[in-house]
Amino acid sequence: MDPRWIVIVLANALLVFLGGQLNHYLAHWSVSVFLLGAAIPLAGLRLRFHPGLIAMFLSGLLVDAARPPVFFGSSALLYATLFTCWHSIRLRLKRDGLAPQVIGALVANLVLFLAQPLLLGIDAAKGTSLSRLVVDLLFSELAVALVIPWFFALQEQALLLCGVDLANEARQPGGAL
């Protein structure tokens, strides 16, 4: 069985756990970071569509399980949609280097962050202040930009340990799809 989607899901579970621990300590200052956009770049840039969609969908379910009551599966559908959009245009984008990872993660994080009030309802949206939203968004984007090189490398190394060499596969004909 191809282990790549399992590795990606476990790596994203680690991301959710580490994000939760960071927010635990930041709670003292009434700020939080939102790191879920960092889960998309590797799948978007390197994985084929089939395992990538499975990995993103299951990662979204993990995210929803740990969050306030929303329609269960909403993050999964968001992740799947963002991944599909990225996957459909990625042949036209540069895929190597740090820039695509960082920019892709920042854009994905921004979209996911701004989608939260739609998922959580009008009470949650009315119950936050603009200053909190701006500060949290800034901190989140900064944290994602700092974390993504490490997280991307972690996922690639984990896949290598499981015998999946994405760089080699991408050089094969049709390997990018």
Binding site: G20, Q21, N23, H24, L26, A27, S30, S32, F34, P68, F113, Q116, P117, L120, A124, A125, G127, T128, R132, L133, D136, L137
Partner: peptide, 11 residues
């Protein structure tokens, strides 16, 4: 166990 004081909810 964990404090979750996000932008949209406090749990």
């Amino acid at each position: 166990v964990r404090r979750d004081f996000s932008t949209w909810s406090q749990r």
